[in-house]
Amino acid sequence: MYVIRTSADQLYALHQRGELVGILQEAERELGRAESGANEKRAWEHSLPAMARDLVDSGLGAVDMMVECAFPGVQGAADVILAGRHPRTHDLSYVVVELKQWRRVTLAPGSQDRFRVGNFTGKLKKHPAEQTGAFCRALLRSHELFAERDDRLAGLTYLHNAADHDVGDLLSYERTGLSHIFTRDSRGALMRFLRERLAPVPGSPASARFVAAVGPDSGGGSASEVMRRRGGFPLLSDMTATEQFALDVLRAAYAGDRKCVVAMTGADTDVVGTVTASVTSALRGAGYTCRGPERHGSAEPPESDVLLCAESRLVQTDDWTRPLDGHVGTSALMAELIVRTRVPVFFLGNDEGETGSARPCPSDLLRRTAEVMGMPVRFFRLDKEFR
């Protein structure tokens, strides 16, 4: 099931005494497992203590850590599964953690979903959040504790050595509550996330329940049926995942070598309000200047690092469809907003246009405006379902 199971406090203490790697090696031998390679041992020495330290610093030292945790019917093993109680519901709560020591990652040329790590010339890598999400979904299908209770499970990838600007291509990955991603630059966000999922109480009862629970249901039991009924995982069903995804996309855009326009579609006005408020607070707390357009769509919006513009605010202005330099199908107001910010972000309700309506489609206006300005524009759907 796992190599060792202990609290974050105890694991970090073992690391500080220089005993952690030796204890893990001894546990492997006792379990009859093949000896781990050099990469795994480096992760034991550096990545596991980083995760434990962040738990301790979050006041969650009593949470249990199940290291190198495998489960019947689930391919592969999780680096760590955190086990404890939810701080609000007091129900069982688990977080699958993938730990990476990667420092620089770029999207492979000509690929949409494979990445090159540093100067490594070997096999291209999948996105680590894809790996975490797949492990979580397998648990949801096969583990008794999650039958009709998928809210008990979350997943994250932690690149504790990496700065945002060195892994920008990873931060734009579309994710759900099963595939959050954090870097050393977002350690504060990681700690908030952990406190939202885990209470500062002993996690040993929760880890014991995880180990003792019934595994795969060979008769096609309730967990599999629930997965079939549920279908995909809509991002908007998890506001924490939605807000973190939006924040990561903006941080990646800011760190990019070339300025681009960001468009997020598919969310209604209430959700956009919630997301923009959360993102604005987080960005300002991290030292970015983050603003919205002036109340009446001023032609001189304030300069800023990030500008967040909701479609509902945009269409309130009288001249939002005024063409840019006479170019049909463009918006001079959008262009003004784009020019005066490092990362212009537009929250648009519908990127498909409105059939039979004379009202211009904001997404089409944005595409055409960015094209005329020679500016790339990236669209992200917040209502997409992930499987």
Rank of each mutant, 00 (worst) to 15 (best):
I4D: 06
A8K: 04
E19R: 12
E28D: 04
R33C: 13
S36F: 14
R42D: 09
V56Y: 08
V63Y: 04
V63D: 01
V67F: 01
A77H: 14
V95E: 03
R103C: 10
L107H: 15
S111Y: 03
G118R: 13
H127A: 03
A129S: 12
E130L: 09
Q131A: 14
L139E: 09
A147I: 02
G155E: 01
L156P: 01
T157S: 11
H165S: 13
L171R: 01
S172Q: 09
G177V: 07
R184C: 00
L190E: 04
L194E: 02
V249G: 15
A252S: 15
A255I: 06
V262G: 00
A263V: 13
A263W: 00
T269M: 07
D270V: 15
G273A: 10
V275P: 01
S281D: 06
A282I: 10
L283W: 10
G285H: 02
G285M: 00
C290W: 03
S298W: 00
E300C: 06
L308C: 12
A310R: 09
R313T: 13
T317L: 08
D318K: 12
T330Q: 14
L333G: 02
L348T: 05
T355F: 00
R368T: 13
A370D: 05
G374S: 04
R378E: 15
F380W: 06
L382I: 04
E385D: 03
